[in-house]
């Protein structure tokens, strides 16, 4: 047990983690997730896959909203673009999946410039609603370009074969998602400790001060938009593969809200929070289902169809209660628990 947290040099301040325990536990967690596909049934495995894909997507939004402070309701637009940028070359023109993944990142990043440039002058809720408008326009454009996107018919997508490895089976696909999620996590953590990441945080905390320090607001906001769109696009491509079918219908507007909910429930601005928030939000409906089931079969019969609505109500309530009673999110809870564990029975 460490007695304190001493930072004596700049490298130790920006190192990913100076604690062996964090590395070891992190490694164990990744290993456990890598082994999990061999032990879980397909249903539980689908939750693991959803957590990994949703987490990747939420990390994308985290760069924009958590780090740089630009609220976006247009997240789903980038997910959709990523899915199509993968599906069109791969499913329609038979390109190798690797090219598909590349375009799933690059296309949304390029489009994000179109979204980002007009958004540079906007702040707060005006920006949020502009991104919302863009999400609607993107889905309209995708639908109307049916010569390329098959329009409302959608595009069926097969599980990919990458670098000679076939990701057809559920277990293999889970591994692919795990690799992508872990790589994204490291990328985001590393961005945060670089010059760029510190500039993002400066823009978020006080953009005028950041500007006087010589940070080019426009350039960094655009960079945040592009990074976010790139990551979200990859997540969108994975989600499309998971659905085995890419269509505008598969990406409802609710996904934007869900992504924001993840950031908030986890703790805005914290990367660990994104991970915790993803797990909670993805599993919440299932937890609610089990909780309702515990009331006994009579209760379930009584609710019959109403049980499903009750679950949604519960979902909304959890978000409200979190914001009300634990605005720092799950990360805040985690820190409290840690402090209690280290200092108990003392208070500090």
């Amino acid at each position: 047990m460490r007695s304190g947290h001493y930072k004596e040099s700049v490298p130790s301040l920006i190192v990913l983690s100076d604690s062996t325990a964090v590395w070891v536990w992190g490694g164990i967690l990744v290993l456990a997730m890598a082994m999990a596909p061999y032990f879980l049934n397909a249903y539980l495995l689908s939750f693991l896959v959803l957590i990994l894909i949703t987490g990747t997507g939420a990390l994308g939004l985290h760069v924009l909203t958590g780090c740089t402070g630009l609220i976006s309701l247009g997240h789903v637009g980038f997910l959709l673009l990523g899915a199509y940028a993968y599906a069109v070359p791969v499913a329609k023109f038979g390109a190798p999946p690797l090219i598909g993944f590349l375009s799933a990142g690059v296309v949304p990043a390029l489009v994000s410039i179109v979204v980002g440039v007009p958004s540079l002058r906007l702040k707060g809720l005006y920006l949020a609603i502009t991104t919302l408008a863009f999400a609607f326009i993107i889905s309209h454009v995708v639908l109307s370009m049916s010569w390329l996107t098959n329009g409302a018919r959608g595009l069926p997508v097969m599980r990919p074969e990458l670098l000679g490895i076939d990701f057809e089976s559920d277990a293999r696909f889970a591994h692919l998602c795990l690799v992508v999620a872990v790589a994204t996590l490291f990328a985001v953590l590393n961005i945060q400790r670089s010059r760029v990441g510190r500039a993002f945080v400066a823009v978020r905390d006080n953009d005028i001060a950041a500007r006087t320090m010589g940070i080019n607001l426009q350039a960094y906001k655009l960079r945040a938009f592009m990074t976010s769109a790139f990551i979200s696009g990859i997540a969108g491509a994975l989600f499309g593969i998971y659905l085995s079918f890419v269509s505008v219908e598969g990406f409802p507007f609710l996904m934007s809200i869900e992504a924001l909910a993840i950031l908030i429930v986890g703790g805005l601005g914290s990367t660990a929070g994104v991970v915790l928030g993803t797990v909670l939000i993805v599993l919440l409906p299932e937890v609610a289902r089990i909780a309702l089931g515990m009331l006994g079969p009579q209760a379930e019969m009584l609710f019959s169809t109403a049980a499903h609505e009750l679950r949604t109500v519960l979902y909304g309530l959890v978000i409200i209660l979190f914001l009300r009673f634990e605005p720092r999110g799950l990360v805040g809870v985690w820190r409290d628990v840690k402090r209690l564990w280290v200092n108990w029975p003392l208070r500090h």
Binding site: A42, S46, Y242, L243, E249, G250
Partner: peptide, 12 residues
């Protein structure tokens, strides 16, 4: 809820 992702999960 007529959402494709949930259809897959429910079937599984």
């Amino acid at each position: 809820g007529y959402v494709a992702a949930r259809t897959i999960q429910s079937v599984k």
